[in-house]
Design a protein around this nucleic acid. Structure first.
Length: 533
RNA sequence: GGGCCGGUAGCUUAGUCAGGCAGAGCGAUGGACUCUUAAUCCAUAGGCCGAGGGUUCAAAUCCCUUCCGGCCCGCCA
């Protein structure tokens, strides 16, 4: 069988057949919380970018925020007074929280922050700045002059016939500030101005530079040429026949004389039980919410291991734990298979936090320490982990903490009981004798490693071991007659500490608890009489 | 009405472009480690590759039809 090549490398190879210098572009409209589906776009772009970098290509990664698009409606998360801003460009609307430069920045900032956490640092452009700086002006002129040709393409490819007063350019009304209520009446190429009338009653003249924007389908194509875009991932909504990529392709070639970028079409991310992520159905998990739970590398891994054309099922419950495990296991493998090695390479990124502490361990630890960071650090130190990188450990602790709060299935949860649980009544004499013997040994030795605890439990079944003979003494029976099943011993431990019959891997679990506490609890359990409570 | 993507083991999937013995991980089962518990290692089982037809010496892969799931266009981007 032929060697399996990662999809990002396949795209990179295809692209390199066309050109040696590339610009990978990605873009999103910051009209609301930017969700995980949008993140597939940037991670996909980043994967292709990295693949191109690895082939010693000259390549840039850029991100364009569509800050000049109008606000479409008063979204549910907006105060009603935003109705007065509907139709105005996002960059010209005040920020909902009052602390950001404008509406667009309010949603853009957390997203840029999330990208940084994911190790993605593209060159960022804002559409309003691009228009205001004048780089679009030539394209605006061309579009206005070739208005009829563009209209013909749109009508032919998309099947939609633009209205007679349609223009590829939407001026911003100087009176009411809206961009979607104006009609172009004339334009002057030399003075670079456009005349318009607005439904608010105003009519006037704006500069092509910053006075408005091209409509989406034309804007997209113009942007390719202006920024030299050669590769661009986009959602399947743009990919269907007659969709914006189809029209953009023709507009780019025939109007702007630019070869359109190599498309990378990606599928939606499905949320378990809730269906596709979509703003209109309200099924939205923001990227920052997602990063509250999933370590960044794992989120990258989830996206990068899956071909862009496939749905991604994302279940933040138990399957997330499996995913994290899978990633960590792969990460520790000496020689992962080729395909996975590549997936792993592309999932890692500089600047991403990474610790050697397994997620599952932290799930146990966090619950033992009731989420207290200092205590967690102490236990980690005792277990021989490096605690130098507090920031990254803290990040993991936060991930685990949020996971336990929001998604953890019941069996993954436990709490160390403050008092001896009543279930202690169900223990047999052998189990109690074992706990008493454990208490003695722990009292003598102090804190032990997870492995030592683990071995201790198993030694209890061996005739001749110290713990075994202690048990025999306590039970006042002959050592050789004492039959012990380790299974019952583990159960006894979980019962007296957690009040349940199973729990996290015992050695590691016990070593994360204070030895004094264990001695006290085990002794108490030994002395416990059902009538006591 | 038109179009796009997906359907491969119980689950998640690779392989489809470029036809050549269907591969992995998880889970399950069995075993090992002087140690089954949410650890590690080894092994085993599990598949009409959604269905039907066609092309071919040879089809998961190419062509046609069809079913299922998801989505898009026909408002706007």
């Amino acid at each position: 069988m032929a060697e399996i090549i990662h999809w990002a490398d396949v795209v990179a190879e295809d692209v390199l057949e066309q050109r040696k210098e590339n610009v990978v572009a990605t873009g999103i409209t910051p009209s609301g919380h930017i969700h995980i589906g949008n993140m597939r776009e940037v991670v996909t772009a980043d994967a292709v970018y990295r693949a191109l970098l690895d082939m010693e290509d000259s390549v840039k990664l850029i991100y364009i925020a569509d800050t000049f698009d109008p606000l479409r409606k008063v979204y549910p998360f907006l105060p009603q007074k935003y109705s007065e801003y509907v139709g105005m460009p996002l960059s010209e609307i005040p920020c909902p929280c009052g602390n950001c430069a404008n509406y667009a920045e309010h949603f853009l900032n957390p997203f840029l922050e999330s990208m940084k956490k994911l190790g993605i640092e593209p060159q960022v452009y804002r559409a309003d700045e691009l228009y205001k700086s004048g780089v679009y002006t030539e394209a605006v002129k061309t579009a206005l002059i070739k208005r009829d040709e563009i209209a013909a393409i749109l009508s032919e490819v998309s099947g939609r016939k633009p209205a007679s007063d349609w223009s590829p350019f939407n001026p911003i009304c100087e009176e009411c500030g809206r961009i979607n209520t104006t009609v172009v009446t004339d334009f002057d190429i030399d003075s670079e101005t456009v005349d318009y009338t607005c439904s608010c009653g105003h009519s006037g003249t704006v500069f092509m530079q910053g006075g408005g924007k091209l409509t989406w389908r034309v804007d997209w194509a113009a942007r390719w040429k202006i920024l030299g875009v050669t590769v661009e991932p986009f959602g399947k909504d743009h990919a269907s026949r007659g969709g914006s990529y189809d029209t953009g392709k023709l507009i780019s070639r025939e109007i702007f004389g630019y070869e359109p970028p190599h498309p990378v079409v990606y599928e939606w991310i499905m949320l378990a039980d809730k269906g596709a992520m979509s703003s209109s159905t309200g099924v939205v998990v923001s990227i920052s919410d997602m990063l509250k739970v999933v370590p960044p590398e794992v989120l990258r891994y989830l996206i990068i291991r899956t071909r862009p054309g496939k749905h991604i099922q994302f279940d933040p419950g138990l399957p997330l734990l499996t995913l994290v495990d899978e990633y960590e296991r792969l990460n520790q493998a000496d020689q992962p298979p080729d395909y996975n090695r590549r997936v792993l390479e592309l999932s890692k990124a500089s600047g991403i936090c990474h610790t050697e502490i397994p997620f599952k361990h932290m799930v146990t630890l966090h619950q033992v320490a009731h989420g207290d960071l200092e205590q967690i650090l102490n236990i980690l130190k005792r277990a021989g982990y490096s605690t130098d990188d507090r920031r990254c450990i803290k990040e993991l602790v936060d991930n685990v903490s949020n996971w336990l709060d929001m998604y953890a299935p019941p069996f993954a949860k436990f709490s160390v009981r403050d008092d001896l649980p009543p279930q202690t009544a169900t223990l047999s004499d052998v189990q109690k004798a074992f706990l008493a013997a454990m208490a003695e040994v722990i009292d003598e030795k102090g804190d032990m490693s997870g492995e030592q605890y683990h071995n201790l439990v198993y030694q209890a079944k061996d005739v001749g071991s110290r713990i075994h003979s202690k048990m025999a003494d306590i039970l006042e029976c002959d050592e050789t007659e004492l039959k012990v099943n380790p299974k019952d011993l583990f159960k006894a431990i979980y019962t007296v500490i957690l009040g349940q019959s199973s729990g996290p891997k015992a050695g590691w679990f016990l070593s994360s608890l204070e030895s004094d506490f264990l001695v006290r609890r085990f002794t108490e359990a030994f002395r416990y009489e059902p009538g006591d409570q």
